[in-house]
Write a protein that binds this DNA or RNA. Structure first.
Length: 330
DNA sequence: AATTTCGACAACCGCAGGCTA
DNA sequence: TTAGCCTGCGGTTGTCGAAAT
């Protein structure tokens, strides 16, 4: 029953771009014999192609009534309108165009040119409805100045906030790496001066060897979990999540940025006035002998007590160590 | 000058429905 | 009636030349 397949799957059949010789053979054959059974065409034309490939080549490229070249403004407008009505029915769209365009050509032109044009105009190329405002649009239309959650100083735009957040996350990662270095140096009993931890009550423990580093720093301590120098220690200790939400910045309900001498560090508020940062991964097991190095399990960083962090800062700033550290942080 | 990246478009793939022996 | 080929169609991939690095 059924027909015999004229063109079976064969790895010997040629695929890919057509040569001019192949085009001529196919065109000559069809001019002489007309379009009949496509499965018979390759054999008749002396082509090592399957019938389907011949049909596509003829209908999309060799057919004499095909109009090639650039699409006119009128054609483009028609395609947009027809696509709006018909969707991706490219053969229907091509049939309704006055010129002899193929469905494949219309489809390619729409996907490579018209889509981009519609996007530039703020129109969804699929639904033909206005696109929702994107991030750039939002950023371009928001006020330029935003205000620090802590001291109401005008500071940064949302875009700058994003960039600073990225920079500060990098800084946090570097701080963790610095901790690793300190532990490594300590474990190897070398002579590089190491920072000593202070066991002050209510003092944030930045370089905590426990997993809870950065966790649950109480703002009321008037101290800071921030790296390096910052003005947070001078801010009133009575702000709340509500006061943050009142800020004009769309980002300030979750993130606050504090301008400082060295850098800015994002902070996250909880409902209990607890400034909380995500825990860093512990660099060493909790039972490691580095706990002996930091007897309190922590080291204050920055704030009003420069001595606490000065040793590590020296590691950073010392010309002799800078190249080593640069190579590590790269 | 060499290499990489990107854009345009030709060609292929696979499915669905029609057709036919 | 039915098995299986043929055709049309839309989605996807591959190729090639231009531009960028």
């Amino acid at each position: 029953m059924g027909r015999y397949p004229c063109c079976k799957e064969s790895s010997e059949l040629k695929k890919g771009p057509w040569s001019t010789d192949e085009d001529k053979k196919l065109a000559d054959y069809i001019h002489e014999n007309g379009i009949g059974n496509w499965q018979m065409v390759p054999k008749g034309a002396g082509l090592n192609r399957c019938g389907k490939s011949c049909r596509l080549r003829w209908t999309n490229y060799l057919r004499p009534d095909i109009k090639r070249g650039c699409f006119s403004e009128e054609e483009e407008d028609m395609i947009i309108q027809l696509h709006k009505q018909l969707g991706n029915r490219w053969s229907k769209i091509a049939a309704k165009l006055p010129a002899g365009r193929t469905d494949n050509e219309v489809k390619n032109y729409y996907n490579t040119h018209i889509k981009k044009k519609l996007m530039r105009l703020g129109i969804d190329p699929i639904t033909h409805k206005p696109l929702p405002p994107n991030l750039n649009h939002l950023l371009n239309n928001l006020p330029h100045n935003y205000y620090n959650s802590f001291n109401n100083n005008p500071i940064i735009s949302p875009l700058e906030s994003i960039l600073r957040l990225q920079a500060n996350l990098t800084q946090m990662a570097n701080a963790q790496l610095l901790q690793n270095i300190a532990q490594f140096l300590n474990n190897n009993n070398n002579n590089i001066p190491l920072p000593l931890a202070q066991n002050n009550n209510n003092v944030p423990m930045l370089f905590n060897n426990n997993v809870t580093t950065f966790d649950n720093f109480n703002v009321e301590s008037n101290e800071s979990p921030l790296l390096f120098d910052h003005p947070l220690s001078t801010t009133p200790n009575s702000y709340s999540i509500e006061s943050v939400l009142d800020q004009p910045s769309p980002m300030s309900n979750s993130l606050g940025f504090v301008p400082g001498n060295c850098d800015l560090v994002p902070s996250v508020l909880t409902s209990n006035n607890i400034l909380s940062l995500p825990p860093l991964v512990s660099a060493t097991p909790e039972t490691s002998n580095s706990d002996q190095m930091f007897p309190t399990g922590a080291m204050q960083c920055g704030g009003g007590n420069d001595d606490d962090f000065s040793a590590l800062e020296k590691i950073f700033c010392d010309e002799g160590n800078s190249s080593l550290l640069e190579s590590i942080f790269q």
